[in-house]
Simulated assay, not measured.
Amino acid sequence: MLEFIVNSINSLGYVGIAFLMALENIIPPIPSELIMPLAGFAVTQGKLNLISVIIAGTIGSVAGAIPWYFLGKYWGLKRTKAIADKYGKWLSVSGADVEQAKNWFDRRGYIATAIGRLIPGIRTYISIPAGISKMSLLPFLAYSTAGSVVWVSLLTYAGYILGENYELVGTYLKPISILVAIAVISLVIYWVIKRKKHHI
């Protein structure tokens, strides 16, 4: 994986960065926590320009979010509710719950989209409820870009500061990612238990 990322950045430069970040959003196992710090390290070697790296990374990040947005739009509320009614019983999730979540996103969708782009594990999939809620494309792109600029800038600057030790960025972020994942899972479990008690 690392060799592929290094070769892409070395051979394609800014286009390679944009390509990798788009791929990272479509195929989440490719880590932005490695791509952008490596690009930041390349800046310290004089191979790339810091601002251009951030722009390329942001373009790729937003481009990779767009397919998920259109997938959510394609599924739509009706189909998602039908899937929840058919397969969501083991989590006590119904079509009504999906509609309630959609209404919540309608009220907070813009800020949720921007903040979601900063959270590992969520940043890719936040585009789906945006599509389901039929958020207009331009606001979606604007808020996705805002969140992506912050995320990409932080990772790039971290790689710039750490230099040859750019790989440590992923090490430092891993505990944070785990805590976020635990928090999200805990909230889901709490919500499921609460719903089951309500139906008893």
Rank of each mutant, 00 (worst) to 15 (best):
L2W: 12
E3R: 06
S8C: 12
L12D: 09
L12Y: 13
Y14L: 12
F19W: 12
F19S: 10
N25T: 12
N25W: 00
I27C: 07
I27Y: 11
I30D: 07
S32K: 06
E33I: 13
L34H: 08
L34M: 14
I35T: 03
A39C: 06
G40Y: 01
F41T: 01
A42G: 07
G46M: 09
G46K: 08
N49Q: 13
N49L: 13
N49W: 10
S52C: 08
V53G: 01
V53Y: 04
G57H: 07
T58G: 05
I59L: 15
V62F: 03
G64C: 07
A65C: 11
I66D: 00
I66P: 00
W68Y: 06
L71P: 02
G72Y: 01
Y74N: 09
Y74F: 14
L77Y: 12
K78E: 14
T80K: 06
I83E: 02
I83L: 12
I83H: 03
A84L: 07
G88V: 06
K89W: 00
K89A: 07
K89F: 01
K89H: 07
S94E: 10
G95E: 11
A96F: 05
E99N: 13
Q100L: 13
G109R: 04
I111L: 13
T113R: 04
G116Q: 03
L118Y: 08
I119F: 06
R123V: 05
T124S: 12
I126L: 05
I132M: 08
M135N: 01
M135L: 06
M135E: 00
S136M: 12
S136A: 14
L137Q: 09
P139N: 11
F140R: 00
L141F: 10
W151Q: 04
S153I: 07
S153D: 03
L154A: 12
L154W: 06
L155Y: 05
L155K: 03
T156M: 08
A158F: 06
L168G: 02
V169F: 07
K174G: 01
P175I: 10
S177D: 11
V180A: 15
A181I: 15
I182T: 14
V184S: 10
V184Y: 05
L187N: 14
I189S: 10
W191Q: 11
W191L: 08
K194R: 15
R195M: 11
K197G: 09
H198L: 13
I200W: 15
I200K: 14
